[in-house]
Amino acid sequence: MGIKGFVEGGIASIVAGSTTHPLDLIKVRMQLQGESPAPVAALRPALAFQSAAGTHTISIPTPPPPPRVGPISVGARIVQQEGVSALFSGVSATVLRQTLYSTTRMGLYDILKQKWSDPRSGNMPLPQKITAGLIAGAIGAAVGNPADVSMVRMQADGRLPVAQRRNYKSVVDAIQRMVRDEGVTSLWRGSSLTVNRAMLVTASQLASYDQFKEMILEKGVMKDGLGTHVTASFAAGFVAAVASNPVDVIKTRVMNMKVQPGETPPYSGALDCALKTVRAEGPMALYKGFIPTVSRQGPFTVVLFVTLEQELFGFHKHGSEAISNVIACLVLILALVCSK
């Protein structure tokens, strides 16, 4: 029971995360739109003009923010300016994140589901589903935060001027450089937000999938099969997107901020980031990137649960076939983690 949930859940998440990565990248770029640039240093006194009437200073008007664009325009701009391969920037971090985060949360949720389900019906009450999702999501996020920070930075790198880009070669290079340049604690920057988001996503995604599936089967709308799995998983993806998007916007901005030695960071924490974002851009800024979030979360959840429900990796079989499937997937995972 235990190892099966971890391995199947992890591999299914890696497949889902890799195939929907371009949508996730577009979402991150949209979430950073309109973010206030680093403050410009004040003019030195030498640039002040003295006159009989007193001292006059030059005031430089702040340029208006660039217009916000939609997901299709963002994707087209990425391809035009950075090439098609840029849509998969940070895919190695996505693979590592899913390996650490989703393997943990899916396995733990499966264990809790087995323990808390009614022995007669095999179903688990909704409050216990939500509780299981909150617990599994929190632990998974804490484990996977270093890969999450790396992923956000690698996805956002292309929007920076060339001189300011981090140019991480892979997720391994990103983690090594963060530890060397910013300290080990930088790997858990925004971890409170990651945990909160993961709790919301896991509770809403996994719990709502089980709930939607049970409702469909109980009402006889469809039989237990591919149609039921796709319908329930897409509905669960929409619920997860609505619940997690505000936290995801703040998480993206906190993880992506540059903190120079001796300088005040743009945000002192999650609450400060949320307040500055709402004051500068309005409350709906917390739903920036919602369309690509739904566009990604829907297919991601469909691929995830269809992969699990159809048992595409052969864990229901015996002997060498299941083992060979896992080994093949592990080789692919290793290759992607070591690449950009």
Rank of each mutant, 00 (worst) to 15 (best):
G75V: 01
T94C: 08
P67F: 05
R120N: 05
D110I: 08
A76Y: 05
S89E: 13
S117Q: 14
V95E: 04
I111R: 09
G75A: 06
G75Y: 01
L108C: 09
I58T: 13
K129E: 12
S51K: 08
P119G: 10
G107P: 06
L87D: 06
F49E: 12
S89I: 07
A136M: 03
L134R: 02
R105H: 15
H56L: 14
V74H: 07
G83K: 11
T99L: 11
W116Q: 04
L47T: 06
P61A: 12
G70W: 01
A53M: 12
R77M: 09
W116R: 09
T104I: 02
M106W: 11
G122R: 03
L108A: 05
S102G: 07
R68K: 14
V69G: 04
R68T: 11
A138M: 12
P119L: 03
T57G: 14
S59Y: 14
T55G: 02
L126A: 09
S89V: 07
T104G: 11
A93E: 00
L108N: 08
T99C: 09
M124E: 06
T94R: 02
A93I: 00
V69Y: 03
S117V: 10
V95S: 04
N123R: 15
P125I: 03
A53H: 09
A93N: 01
G83R: 11
G75W: 01
A93L: 00
T104Q: 05
A132F: 01
G137N: 01
D110R: 14
K113T: 15
T131I: 14
S89W: 10
G137R: 02
S73T: 11
T55Y: 09
S102C: 14
P65E: 08
G90F: 05
L100P: 04
S102N: 12
L112W: 06
P71G: 01
A136C: 02
I58V: 13
V69L: 08
S92K: 00
I58A: 10
E82P: 02
R97N: 11
I130F: 14
V74E: 09
S102W: 05
G90T: 04
A136T: 03
I111T: 10
G133F: 04
R97L: 12
P67K: 11
T62F: 00
S85P: 05
G54K: 03
Q114S: 09
A138P: 03
G133T: 10
L126Y: 12
P125E: 00
I72N: 03
S89Y: 13
R120S: 12
G83T: 07
K113P: 01
M106A: 10
R105P: 00
V74P: 06
I72D: 00
I135Y: 01
S102F: 15
Q98I: 06
L112K: 08
L126Q: 07
Y109V: 09
K129A: 08
T131V: 14
A93C: 00
A52F: 06
D110P: 07
P127S: 05
L100N: 06
T104E: 09
M106T: 15
S121K: 00
Q128W: 13
T57L: 15
F49I: 08
